[in-house]
């Protein structure tokens, strides 16, 4: 087929081309059977499944303390109570402190999540309205001018969410 030229007369490019031709002529490789190729493609699904985000763990917070405005907690040595209604919720390894202040016929809410994680989002929701907030540097959050009503509060972290099922304002 192709004449072999003595080495000394061949340029590097020609030698390389001869090398390539030689490799092609001795190539006895075959494609893997179709079922094996299918197996290999499907092997990636394991990874996709393993990497898929898991469902959020949902923690329902339990009300531990609910103090009306200007009332000190039982047994607390305090000069006086807060002007805000104060609620403390237990959520497993963390807690939620909520303070609700009346503002005319609306309500301002100040809260703080006491725990290790920083929330990705905080949502206050009723059947008629939805408010969102974000953690500040002290893991605090705020909602202003919230109408009276029955709300739920959801604090979402990377892998968990803490839910306070019922907060009644007004």
């Amino acid at each position: 087929m192709k004449a072999i030229v003595p080495d000394k007369m061949m340029t590097n490019e020609n030698r390389k081309l001869d090398h390539i031709i030689g490799r092609m002529q001795t190539d006895t490789s075959v494609d893997a059977p179709a079922d094996l190729i299918k197996f290999a493609r499907n092997a990636f699904l394991q990874r996709s499944l393993a990497k898929a985000p898991s469902m959020l763990e949902r923690i329902v917070a339990v009300l531990k303390m609910d103090l009306a405005p200007n009332r000190a907690a039982f047994g607390e040595r305090s000069a006086g109570g807060s002007a805000a209604r104060q609620m403390l919720f237990d959520a497993g390894n963390s807690a939620i402190d909520l303070r609700v202040t009346e503002n005319g016929n609306m309500f301002n809410i100040r809260g703080q999540h006491i725990g290790d994680q920083v929330a990705e989002s905080i949502q206050l929701e009723s059947k008629d309205a939805k408010f969102t907030s974000k953690n500040d540097e002290l893991k605090g959050f705020a909602f202003d001018s919230v109408p009276a009503g029955k709300y739920s509060l959801t604090i979402t972290f990377a892998s968990t969410e803490i839910v306070i099922d019922e907060i009644i304002l007004g």
């Binding site: 192709k2 001869d18 030689g22 002529q25």
Partner: peptide, 12 residues
């Protein structure tokens, strides 16, 4: 089949 490959050349 002929084999013209050159052991001193690498394609890698």
């Amino acid at each position: 089949m002929s084999d013209n490959r050159d052991e001193n050349i690498s394609l890698l």
